[in-house]
Structures are given as C-alpha cells and as structure tokens.
Design a protein around this nucleic acid. Sequence first.
DNA 1: AAGTGGTCTAGACCACAAT
DNA 2: TTGTGGTCTAGACCACTTG
Lengths: 249, 249
Amino acid sequence: MESPVPHEPPIYRRIADRLRDAILSGDLRDGDRLPGENALMSEYGIARATARQALAVLINEGLAVPKRGSGVYVRRFRPIRRHGSRRLSREQWGAGRAIWDSDTSGRPYTVDDLSITREPAADEAARVLDCEEVWVRRRRYSVDGRPVQIAASHFPALLVSDTPIVVPDTGPGGVYARLRDLGHAPAHFTEEVRARMPTPEESAKLDLPAGTPVIVVCRAAYAAGGTAVELNKMIMDAASYVLQYDFDA
Amino acid sequence: MESPVPHEPPIYRRIADRLRDAILSGDLRDGDRLPGENALMSEYGIARATARQALAVLINEGLAVPKRGSGVYVRRFRPIRRHGSRRLSREQWGAGRAIWDSDTSGRPYTVDDLSITREPAADEAARVLDCEEVWVRRRRYSVDGRPVQIAASHFPALLVSDTPIVVPDTGPGGVYARLRDLGHAPAHFTEEVRARMPTPEESAKLDLPAGTPVIVVCRAAYAAGGTAVELNKMIMDAASYVLQYDFDA
DNA sequence: AAGTGGTCTAGACCACAAT
DNA sequence: TTGTGGTCTAGACCACTTG
C-alpha cells in the first residue's frame, strides 16, 4: 500500500485560497484589482483555463467581480438595513448598537418599472389570499442608481378593484393607508425569509454579478379579523441588505 | 455599419437554459439525473469544456448537484421552518396557511461538535456585549444526519463564569433558563439576517454543494434593563431553512 | 471494466476597455 | 493598439462510482 498522504488541494484551489486570504486579511481592499489571468499564468506557470478556474472560485463566492476588458476586482459590500418591526426596534434596546455595520443614512429609494395588472392568482398568492383573481403592483427599487430590490404586491381582486390601490400614485401612506380607508387596515404581518441563487431573469433585473444570492421575503398582511389582505413578494440583492427583526421574549 | 442583430447567448448558456426549463417545469424532478458531459457533447456536438460550462451554470445556481463518478442530479429542496417569535406566530393568523411548503414535522435536531471555550471577544461580540472576554458555546446541528447549521453563542465572561452555562449540559430550558436563574432573563431579542456565499470552511462544516448560499443570523438577547446578555451567530444552509417572523402593525 | 465527473494543457478567436 | 476577460476546441490523465 502507498502511504496515505493527505491529498493536496488542486492548484486552482490553492491559488484561490491565497487570493481569498489577501482579500479577507485586508491586503486587497474594496475595489482593488486582482492579478488577472495572464498574471496568474506567468506567476504560477499554469494554463489559461486553470487561471480562469481560480478566479471563478472567488467570483462564485461573491468576493470578486469581473469587469470585461479591464480586470477582476474585489467586491464592495455596503448593505442597507431593513427593519421588520420598527415599533420594537433597537432605539430602546442595546443602546443603539447594531451588530453589523450598514448604511443607516436613509438614502432615498427610487422606483422604476412600476406596473399594475390584474391576473389570475398563482400558487402562493391563491393559497394565502384565498382568491382566484388578484391585482399585482410590481416595481423595482434602486438606491444610488443601482437596483437593489424587485417586489410584487398581490391584493385580492374583489377587495381592491376600482380603488386607489390599483392606480400608480396611492397617495400619502401608500397602499396600507388605503387598505385602512377601505376598512381593512393591516393588523398583523408575517414574513417568510429564504435565500437562494437568482434566476437569470432576477439576475438581469437586479444587475447582479455572479456569486450573489438573493434574499426572498414573502410578507403577508392580515386585517384584524384574520383575513389576508396583501401578499408581497420581494427579491433583494443579498449583498445590499441586512434584515433586522425585533421581538420580545 | 452592420445591422445591430441582438446577440444570441453563447451555446453553453442556451444549453443551461434548456436544462433549467426542464427542471423548473417539472420535466426533471428532484433527484433525477441530468444528461452528463458525454451526453451533451454528442447531442450538441460541442467540446468537453463547453458541456462542463453548461452544467456549471446549473450547479452554481443551486439547481443541480454533481456526484463524482456518477452524474449530475436535480437538487432537492425541503426547508425547515424556523420561527423568530413563536408567541405571535401564525396559529391565530391566516388560518395556519404557510406561504411556502416546508417540513413542519418537527424532526429532531442532533448536536455534535459541541465546544465551550473562553476567548477574547472579537469585533461584533465585543461591541454588542460590551466586554473584552467571552465564553463561547459552539455547536453544529444536524437533521436526519445532515448538517444544517453551525452556531456560536457568546456570553460576557464576567456574567457566566462558574455557572451552568459553561458546562456541556445546561439542563432543562437551556441557556436562557440559566440566564433567568442568574437574574438576567432575556426580555428582548433582535436578529440581523444576511445571506452570502459560504467560506470554504463553512462549506466543509455544512457539507454544502456548490451554488448554496448560507443565511447568517446574528441574534442579540437583552435583559430587562437593556444589557446584552448573549450574542448568537448562526450559519445556516440556505437550502434547508425558511425563517418566519411575525409582528403586529 | 466502463462510465462519470475533476483537473489540466495549449492552443484559438472574439468583444470590450483603457491608453 | 494592447491587454483584458468570454467563449470554445481537442486533446490528456486522474479518482471515483457503478455494474
């Protein structure tokens, strides 16, 4: 028997490991350029495909972003903080210390691609809203000109047809204020949170580099009687968000 | 000038698109085998590397899992539901309808790799717990023999030294009951949720296939006076979890 | 033993960015 | 114009799984 030598990782892995260490240790900082394919080929005496493979590791880990014709760069991470329940939020707890740094500066959202359509209710919407026809408000949010979230709010058609909810400008307070006007003020929310890799469509709409997951938040709003009045499905660039939830014991 | 023909996607993308459609439409189901490299080579008349590239797309999207020496298979997705605040939870709201299907069956966790150490507090722990030395309980949770989460609970050293919190078996009610015994019952929680691609270390500990993000939950527990008494950092296999949060308007 | 995915070489042509 | 990443071919050897 051969002596059971522990397997060395393949070359491309070792190169990726070195580069990752440089990024995580701070040797390479946000926006810095990584050694390119040619540099790696000559430095390590490897073929083109192998150098690409090493860089692909970091790209798929979300640590680096390739720019065509230019180079591969260390990725930036500046998340937005999104509060689940503001009422219980950290102002009175923990002396305002956040766990992760984030952009608290309240930079303004812009909305584009707003569309309002009436459709047959699909899967989740049909089950939660318990109806067959829905009005859907779809929109995309951007911060600093970069898209960060796409959202689709579903309302039972019977509830909102011919109301301000199905026109572009819902007025002060937004759709929740209008639901209140209709006697269906949301009293309770439940949010379900998942994370996964984006579909190509989501990737395009959010302009995501490879290696970026999306956070999927599905929020149902219930009126006081327990009827579901809204189902909002949000797809967020995971590199752009920190979600915060507060609750009492 | 040439007529501006819209670019066709490269071959490997088109193949990946076809396979993705087959998966999402249900033609290929959970656990089914995808056409392998050789099959794609002969079917499309392409080189090995190109076939690999097509499969790599699906693998990095988390839709497929490669098995060495065997084939590439459609990935299974059966998440566990984790409740943020049980008290407000869906029992009384929405007639118990969950938005996403999930394993409600309460399958038991098993814990392995439990370790309890005293360490200097690092970055987040130092800031939130406002101390320089912490006790850390690290453990890994598995369900059905598959690891799904690693967690590290941090406690201020001054608070918990020589208490049942720093021994393996914390007794009925766990660490929160013991904190209560010490007069530091948690009264408020705040959780911060992020998603990102795993580090190689996390990938190894959770045995993650490529294309699987992790959900990172950082939970701080505060006693009635507002002092932080615990910081728990959890790394979860994103394909294994749905997080649920309930709150009132 | 045959088939599969994992790694790697040595070329090629292209589109795009920087200069 | 030069260098960069993006795509692709045509081979090769290996480790592993399955029959």
